[in-house]
Write a protein that binds this DNA or RNA. Structure first.
Length: 650
RNA sequence: GCGCCUGUAGCUCAGUUGGAUAGAGUGUCUGACUACGAAUCAGAAGGUCGGGGGUUCGAGUCCCUCCGGGCGCGCCA
């Protein structure tokens, strides 16, 4: 946001500082900027922007709020801020501003004409590299809808950060040496004769459930898990080879699942490479040299290397707040490896992976993979900020990671580590029942947790396929003239819109109660509603006389004085795109952005219903064509930020 | 036991650092397609914001307390 283009947000900021000036001049009182809010009032009678600042001042100044508001308005009027026509006061003490919408519209048109696809971008992240780690699915079974929430949130975050000017690198961590993979290896060795080529992840889903059942029945089978786990970590043996093969095949399945939804990565980070390249040994030496790693001679952690966290807020009350990094038998804990890995992300470990090209993704970008003997590259990691998209159950561990970095001498890195913690996905009673999970028939309020071990859950591909089927059916109903292939093609794009919007529209800190009926819904506050608004705009423009369309120029088209309520409302929503992007990117709230895009779409729907374009008077028509062009551009940019396909027909 | 999250319309959710009459969607009921596509729009009904105290000009929002639901507290990964 630069130049002299005053939109609502810039105006809000300008009025904020002018108001502070007014308070300081009039009452010799310095108010923090954050205490002065100019916002959109609930009723049009209260103007276009308003502030309750006089109400707040009343107590301190011991004066009537209405009088204060009046004095502030008088002061502001004398300052003649741009695009404000008038200031006025309403009870019980609000100061309101009326804007020159005609001039404001002119300015927005100009900006969209210049910025086009870049309209809505901001530059707060310029020069900063952020590494976003998401997806991170155990490579031992099919992805389920919980993983889908992770991936959709992470991908939307990445898109928002890019639009906010950050240099974004998306990493997908693969725990190929963990217990989960070991379990499937045990299952294959104990239960399976040969492995199928198709739907390998689905096959492993069942194997994983089965082996966990066996563990219950034959506890001594559990000994085999640890033996397999040991062999995998050791490497260079048939069991390790099998594990590697399983992990790679599963990762391939996961990638296909995510690619279908427009989710792409820059780098796959393999746990086995972290181990093989000795990241922890490197980190251990580094941390020892910093002098904050403690070797315990006595107490409960005798013989271990620990980091002391007892004075960290939130840890004081723990029985044993210190975190063991190296066990008394000399092996490193999971957290220790995580610390090493996190240091690598910031480029301060003093050790790097080698890299190989993994494949070309459907969007035309190369996916790279870490490797223990590939080529050296300087481009990965080295982040200014790191965001780990991991569900909230791991909050404690993520806190330990963050505070450990701080305590161990990497204060900056700790401060710049963000745990993007989201709640898990659970099943509604209805959907659980449909899956055959035993549910309480009396009680539809209870939600049911998914469980990989028990095989309870909705697989991501199943859900995607069902939504595609439903969307394809809806398209076919509306377009009998199209071929089944076209139906399916449009159905796919609509399904992507429905799924992605459903996954990001809720607050991340509450459990997403997954219900099939709701996920399949395409009316109301859904992804297809947003796509439909765009399609309607495209449809209008497709019907405008070619000559007129070519002739309408956003930079010169006359803006009428008598803008209607629906026109004004739409213009105002279009001007909000940059600030909506900025706020969502900075607060990491994709849902905030989703809500904005929904309001934008609704604004257009209202305009559409009330404001004919093609049959309006010539001058009005040309203005409305310009407005539709502007909306279409803004909506297209907004949908791209959500990763939702843009459709001219649906 | 300690800690964190959560409770708003029948259901799923919004609700900016305390601000004007608590909002959407869905479901139910009623209207609007020979009109730029009805995946839409307009209207009705639906609320002790979990209960009770407190703070103040003003509380869904802040504090205390109680109740319900979820999760976390390893020399596991």
């Amino acid at each position: 946001m630069e130049g002299n283009s005053y939109h609502f947000y810039e105006l809000e900021l300008l009025l904020q500082s002018l108001t502070r000036e007014a308070v300081s001049e009039l009452y010799n009182f310095i108010l923090p900027l954050d205490d002065i809010v100019w916002g959109i009032p609930p009723q049009p009678e209260f103007g276009d922007l308003s502030t309750p600042v006089a109400l707040r001042l009343a107590r301190k100044l011991r004066r009537r709020p209405l009088d204060i508001a009046q004095e502030i308005c008088t002061y502001l009027t004398e300052q003649k801020p741009p695009y404000v026509k008038e200031f006025a006061v309403t009870a019980p003490g609000y100061a309101n501003a009326w804007l020159d919408m005609q001039a404001l519209t002119r300015s927005v048109f100009d900006q969209i004409a210049v910025d086009k696809d870049e309209y809505g971008q901001v530059e707060i992240g310029k020069g900063l590299k952020v590494v976003i780690e998401h997806t991170n699915i155990n490579p031992n079974k099919a992805a389920h809808i919980g993983h889908l929430r992770n991936a959709c949130l992470g991908d939307t975050l990445a898109r928002l950060k890019k639009r906010a000017g950050y240099d974004v690198e998306v990493q997908n961590y693969i725990d190929d040496t963990g217990m989960a993979v070991a379990d499937v290896v045990v299952a294959i060795q104990e239960l399976a004769a040969e492995l199928p080529e198709e739907k390998f992840d689905y096959y492993c889903w069942d194997l994983y459930t089965e082996i966990n059942r066996r563990y219950e029945q034959e506890p001594k089978l559990q000994e085999k898990r640890y033996e397999v786990l040991r062999l995998i970590e050791e490497g260079d043996n048939p069991t390790a080879e099998l594990a590697k093969d399983v992990a790679q095949k599963i990762v391939e399945c996961h990638l296909n699942t995510m690619w279908r939804l427009g989710i792409y990565y820059n780098l796959l980070n393999w746990e086995s490479d972290i181990i093989r390249l000795g990241f922890w040994d490197q980190a251990f030496n580094l941390l020892k040299s910093k002098g904050q790693l403690v070797y315990e001679e006595e107490g409960p952690n005798a013989g271990c290397w620990v980091v002391r966290l007892g004075d960290v807020p939130g840890f004081e009350d723990l029985e044993n707040p210190d975190k063991v990094l190296v066990r008394s038998n000399g092996t490193a804990t999971y957290t220790a490896k995580d610390i090493a890995y996190q240091l690598w992300k910031f480029g301060v470990l003093g050790k790097d992976f080698f890299y190989d090209r993994c494949c070309l993704q459907p969007n035309g970008t190369v996916l790279w993979t870490t490797s223990s003997e590939g080529t050296k590259m300087e481009r990965f990691g080295r982040a200014d900020r790191v965001i780990n998209v991991i569900d909230l159950r791991q909050r404690y561990l993520q806190d330990v990671l963050r505070f450990s970095l701080i305590k161990l001498g990497f204060e900056q890195e700790g401060e710049n580590s963000v745990h993007f913690g989201y709640e898990v996905v659970a099943l509604s009673a209805k959907t659980a029942r449909e899956l055959g999970v035993p549910v309480d028939d009396e009680d539809d309020k209870t939600v049911y947790a998914m469980s990989g071990r028990k095989g309870i859950g909705v697989k991501a591909d199943d859900m995607v396929e069902q939504v595609i089927k439903h969307a394809t059916f809806e398209v076919a109903k509306r377009h009998p003239e199209m071929s089944p292939e076209e139906h399916r093609k449009l159905g796919l794009d609509i399904a992507i819109g429905a799924i992605r919007y459903y996954m990001v529209r809720f607050n991340i800190s509450s459990v997403l109660v997954f219900d099939f009926d709701e996920a399949l819904n395409m009316q109301g506050n859904t992804g297809p509603y947003l796509q439909y608004a765009y399609a309607r705009a495209a449809n209008i423009l497709g019907r405008v006389d070619r000559e007129i369309l070519d002739d309408v120029d956003l930079r010169t088209v006359p803006v009428p004085e008598d803008l209607t309520v629906n026109e004004k409302n739409l213009i105002r929503l279009i001007t909000e795109l940059p600030v909506a992007t900025q706020r969502a990117a900075e607060t990491l709230q994709g849902s905030l952005f989703a809500e904005y895009v929904y309001r934008l779409a609704t604004g257009f729907m209202n305009f559409y219903e009330t404001s004919p374009v093609l049959t309006a008077t010539p001058a009005r028509m040309r203005f409305r064509v310009a407005l539709v062009i502007s909306f279409k551009q803004a909506m297209s940019n907004a949908l791209a930020t959500l990763g939702i396909p843009v459709l001219t027909r649906m």
